[in-house]
């Protein structure tokens, strides 16, 4: 049991319903101070609702939570004084300049106008936005908006920073930039709770990952633990001819049992082998049957495989990705 003083967020049995839909169906969460914690799940899993409850934007129907030691229900004002939230869509005033947006927020925090301007300029410089400081936000690119939005959350250093899908809709280089920033923030001692539907993002950034689906937490741990829980000793096989996938998969299943995962883009098959001896026998059988292998290796499952195993197959996850693209267009 972690010492409670050490926890930035402690949630027990959080529930939120919207009419007949139970968006969050009883979630427990412990987030240690100064760490990056990722909530991973497909669209509609309840990630955003969970975050909004912790950020006091949505009331919980049941359960309790404290953020930086303050109860979200009985002391929301104290919670607000120690958090910042960057939502899925840049919450900025598009008509104002980037600088005006930051100055406005700094003054709402109580900085006098001179100090507010100084803090705004400092943040603009830090986020590489000085050149665009006097442009209206409506003229910013997606990456610039996201940076300004995160800067707006850092006027006063928050105890906990909530980031709701911080890189959704960003191009790869802008995404790298935001990741870099998140690591720097964590380095500065800010606890970060982020939601994501990108496994790679959770893998790259977070010390701990909670996988949620249908409003429930279905697994939690470090990325390594999650991979280990799904089973080690995975055999990955790449075929020269993708057309042979079905036949090869059938043969692997016959030798090793269990289900064979197929990579979505290429002709890679992954299957739980159990032991190196069993894997060796299966490989020999493949070669004997005349399959042309370009590569094979033993290893831990990828986080994708963990995710599919936990949420019930790649079909649903693909579904989630398709919805995201639609939502972004």
């Amino acid at each position: 049991m972690t010492d409670q003083q050490d926890l930035a967020i402690r949630a027990r049995g959080l529930v939120r319903r919207f009419g007949d839909l139970t968006a969050v169906a009883g979630i427990d969460l412990d987030v240690r101070r100064g760490t990056i914690f990722a909530v991973l799940g497909p669209n509609g899993a309840g990630k955003t609702t969970l975050l909004r409850m912790l950020a006091t934007l949505t009331a919980a129907d049941a359960g309790t939570a404290t953020v930086m030691g303050h109860d979200i229900t009985t002391a929301p004002h104290k919670v607000r004084a120690s958090i910042a939230m960057t939502g899925q869509f840049a919450s900025l005033d598009e008509d104002l300049t980037g600088r005006d947006n930051l100055v406005m927020l700094a003054r709402l925090w109580g900085f006098r106008s001179g100090a507010a301007r100084a803090r705004a300029d400092e943040l603009l410089a830090a986020f590489d936005l000085s050149a665009a400081a006097r442009k209206q936000v409506k003229n910013y690119s997606g990456g610039m908006r996201r940076r300004l939005d995160i800067a707006a959350s850092l006027i006063v250093t928050p105890g906990v920073l909530f980031l709701d899908e911080p890189t959704t809709g960003l191009d790869p280089s802008a995404r790298q930039g935001v990741w870099h920033l998140i690591r720097q923030l964590a380095g500065a001692g800010v606890t970060i709770l982020l939601t994501t539907q990108y496994l790679e993002e959770a893998d790259q950034l977070a010390e701990r990952i909670a996988v949620i689906d249908h409003g429930r937490k279905i697994a939690e741990g470090t990325s390594r633990e999650l991979k280990a829980a799904t089973g080690s000793g995975f055999l990955h096989v790449s075929l020269a001819d993708p057309g042979q996938c079905d036949a090869a998969a059938a043969l692997l299943m016959q030798h090793l049992g269990g289900s064979v995962q197929r990579s979505p883009e290429g002709a890679e098959l992954s299957v739980l082998a159990g032991s190196a001896t069993a894997a060796n026998a299966a490989l020999a059988a493949l070669i004997e049957a005349g399959f042309d292998l370009t590569d094979f290796r033993m290893g831990a499952p990828s986080l994708d495989e963990v995710f599919f195993a936990l949420t019930g197959g790649p079909d649903r996850a693909k579904d989630g990705k398709r919805n995201t693209t639609e939502a972004m267009t």
């Binding site: 004084a81 925090w109 109580g110 900085f111 006098r112 100090a115 803090r119 400092e122 943040l123 410089a125 830090a126 986020f127 850092l154 006027i155 006063v156 250093t157 720097q184 923030l185 500065a188 001692g189 800010v190």
Partner: peptide, 8 residues
């Protein structure tokens, strides 16, 4: 810029 800034 990311140094600890306390609220006024």
């Amino acid at each position: 810029a990311l140094r600890q800034v306390a609220p006024p």
